[in-house]
Amino acid sequence: MKQIDWSSLVINESGKAVKKFMYVNRHAPHGTIYPLEGLEVVLIGAAFDQDVSMAFIGDGVFQLNKGQDTADSGMKNVALTYGALGDYEVTKLYVEQESLDERGLELNDLMNLTWEDEEENWAEKPSIQVVSRAQLSDLLEQQDVILNF
């Protein structure tokens, strides 16, 4: 009989097994529909009580760039919606260091995204974590489901 590894099993409030979902964002905002579609899937998926994280690599890091203002181009400003991720309990946003470096960006250039920890009297905590390519590679390996946008 096949041996089952129970050590990694996590059960959520409704008694279902929790899977690790990672949404990988690789496209610049505004130029294509990928970032918007991805964000909608994340927000809708957040209702299912899974272990959700987002990764931003390549041009995907531009999605988090500070000061995006679409008023003149007549588009809806999707950048503002990232601010709601904390309310949807999406609190792990991994940004690849190498992608930032190639684009002349640092953590300071990104939006200050936070989530509030209800268990610690709504203490505000940062959602963005800058990780190396090697660390991200390990994180990808740990996922049950990976979706690319």
């Binding site: 957040a46 209702a47 809806k76 503002l80 709601a84 309310d87 949807y88 709504w122």
Partner: peptide, 21 residues
């Protein structure tokens, strides 16, 4: 106000929690 700030209408459980806060 929520829409103005985040450009989305919150899902019901998000609304409930945010109202509570």
């Amino acid at each position: 106000d929520y829409y103005e700030e985040y450009q989305i209408a919150p899902a019901v459980r998000v609304l409930t929690k945010a109202i509570g806060k």
